[in-house]
């Protein structure tokens, strides 16, 4: 099913809660705004966040003649989304599954979803380097154009886990497009004093250390947080924010990659 996808982008991080889902959704939304056809696959089975962030909770998946039809965000069908969240009866239902069951679900997501022609398929992952990640790598092996974006926060404790994820990517042979540092500083709304709550610069120095491109720094911006649950792109709603600039730049370089015939 993935032959018609021009480029697969995996959003990874060893650590949880650093903003993988926020980055995945904003990346997909920005790509869509720039006119690309995008798919977003959420393989976090125990904690799917994408349906909530994109305001698609309660939508359901239909079976078409060629496979599962993803949920589309827009009537023009430029952004298709697939997540286990669409298959649960209630939003509070827990998916209590061991590895093998998770692996077969992910395999189905990769093989049975009818994405049609896509420019980009963004895959949002759970934290760690275990079943989900091994399965997705194994199944993406025949796919030619596949790269990873790593998300981290500036704290040492997050960077420590992201270093493990870099090792994982190198071992499994997936090229790393670069590192994004999220939650860098917080500007106090009343005095505009910037506090580096989770310290700063960690992502940049990690990129230097691992000799990887640094894709940008996303500050803690409550305006971006408020977009969660509404499915709106930061580039359109808050175009002057540094978040939109970072995503704009990433998407421009991705677009260049695509027009160069990969």
């Amino acid at each position: 099913m993935l032959e018609q996808v021009k480029q697969v982008i995996l959003v990874l991080s060893g650590k949880g809660g650093v903003g993988k889902s926020t980055v995945s959704t904003q990346l997909a939304l920005t790509l869509k705004e720039k006119g690309f056809k995008v798919g977003l696959l959420d393989i976090d089975l125990c904690g799917p966040s994408v349906p909530y962030i994109l305001n698609l909770e309660g939508k359901s998946i239909h079976q078409g003649p060629e496979g599962w039809i993803p949920v589309y965000l827009d009537p023009e069908q430029r952004l298709g989304v697939m997540s286990i969240g669409f298959l649960l009866n209630s939003r509070n239902d827990a998916v209590v599954w061991r590895g093998p069951k998770k692996s077969s679900m992910i395999k189905q997501f990769l093989e049975d979803v009818c994405w049609q022609d896509l420019d980009f398929l963004v895959i949002d992952t759970p934290p760690g380097t275990s079943d989900e990640h091994i399965t997705v790598m194994e199944n993406l092996r025949p796919v030619k154009n596949c790269a990873a974006i790593l998300v981290t926060t500036p704290q040492e404790v997050a960077i420590e886990d992201v270093r493990k994820e870099i090792t994982f990517c190198r071992k499994t042979g997936i090229p790393i497009m670069g590192i994004i540092e999220n939650m860098s500083g917080y500007e106090c709304p009343s005095c505009s004093h910037c506090t580096n709550i989770f310290s700063s610069g960690g992502g940049h120095s990690l990129a230097e250390l691992a000799k990887l491109p640094f894709l940008g720094t996303l500050p803690i911006d409550p305006r971006v947080g408020q977009l969660a649950g509404r499915g709106l792109p930061a580039v359109k709603e808050i175009p002057d924010s540094s978040t939109s600039k970072v995503f704009g730049n990433i998407v421009d370089s991705l677009g260049g990659l695509l027009s160069n015939g990969l």
Binding site: S103, S130, D131, I134, R163, K164, T167, F168, K171
Partner: peptide
């Protein structure tokens, strides 16, 4: 080393 990744499926964990 701190770079070492534990790439294990469920049963090993």
């Amino acid at each position: 080393s701190p770079d070492d990744a534990v790439i294990w499926r469920g049963p090993k964990k």
